[in-house]
Design a protein around this nucleic acid. Sequence first.
DNA 1: CTACTATTCAATAAACTTATTGAATAGTTG
DNA 2: CAACTATTCAATAAGTTTATTGAATAGTAG
Lengths: 226, 226
Amino acid sequence: MSSNVSNKCAFKHDLFVQFARVGKALSNGNRLELLEFLAQSERGVDELARISGLTVANTSQHLQQLRQAGLVLSRKEGLKVYYRLSGDDIITLLGTLRGVAERHVADVERLVNTYLTVKDSLEPIPRDELLERVKHDLVTVLDVRPPEEFAAGHVPGAVNVPLDELEQYLQKLDPELEAVAYCRGPHCVLAFDAVARLREKGLKARRMQDGFPEWKQAGLPVESGE
Amino acid sequence: MSSNVSNKCAFKHDLFVQFARVGKALSNGNRLELLEFLAQSERGVDELARISGLTVANTSQHLQQLRQAGLVLSRKEGLKVYYRLSGDDIITLLGTLRGVAERHVADVERLVNTYLTVKDSLEPIPRDELLERVKHDLVTVLDVRPPEEFAAGHVPGAVNVPLDELEQYLQKLDPELEAVAYCRGPHCVLAFDAVARLREKGLKARRMQDGFPEWKQAGLPVESGE
DNA sequence: CTACTATTCAATAAACTTATTGAATAGTTG
DNA sequence: CAACTATTCAATAAGTTTATTGAATAGTAG
């Protein structure tokens, strides 16, 4: 009985140690950023290194750790290795961790206030509401992510307008319609900048709630391709 | 413009570093266990040390880290310091992390199969279904947690039956009713043991989905007290 | 005010993590 | 088959984390 009890305690401890492997994978800012990039689309190592600003070797090391923790999977195509998230539940995990940090870590609140809320203190439009507006052609939806992320999947009817092309694109906008912009996630400056620019031009503009990965994971319709 | 771009990159990196603070807090098995204890009820340091098997100093250190990461809050009452979770979203975070580990970490699957699934491979009864059965007096609900956790909150109508009292309690059970047992979470051996014992006696018995914290956080009715 | 209790702090050693650098490996091309 | 490309591995130094131990702090009781 006594050895039975200690076996159970050891089992439970072992289980927590295993759960902690996922926590370890999420304990580094670089790995979190890599996960956010992979939430948009499958990517190769060299591309991930480039967009994250890490060396290829360092990127590869972090990806090994993410794979060991079960958060990503890989496939090889010729010389290139492509990484992807192991499931949509990783997006939920990232969103939950981000939400907890937003609510309970003062430094996060401070950073968000300093860089984001000053640009747009309005609440973003909820996904379901946006979907209704899209169905009734009541909005223009702008996806300000890089083209390859847009191609991998986007909100139906969205137009891919990287920020440096926004000026030119303005001429094609229906000024009667409200514009809604989205990016990779709820803290992507690009969506905030886009909204700020649109408002400067006198247009009604808002951000979408969260980013594209959350839209997709909520089971909402998705388009692919250019 | 260029300094603007690098400011934005620095901001985003800083944000991920802050998010990683939550990941760091979850990167140690002992801290995860402490969080599961706190999910049941507010506790003092000495009690947490006792039930987790850590020294008081070590427990205190881990609690400081959890507090710095925003996951717990504390209050002082005389000599004693009581810790509690900073919000129900921490329960969501723990559940999401656990779910990801269950699905994507082979060692977790192996541990669960070795210690739990062999005891009860039936699916646990979902919370909503249990609530309906409770309302219609169709089940007996057994809470196998320690009395102080039961007192802090439990499923309405549940009876607190620590495992070593189950034998005696059997005589009071209505053998016509199905028994449903629950504990601190989905991997608590006690709920599995209770179900195994009840079935040995010829009773219909199942586990409840997850544990009490998840029930409460789903907004389902809760009773307090003995 | 002293003695006690509960908790936290600080120093320490050992183990772990991180980024770097160069080597090794696997796949492709000519 | 040699040269090249893309990626991973291994060794390393520096920094961080963990548990321990004893000191320090805060609150209480007599």
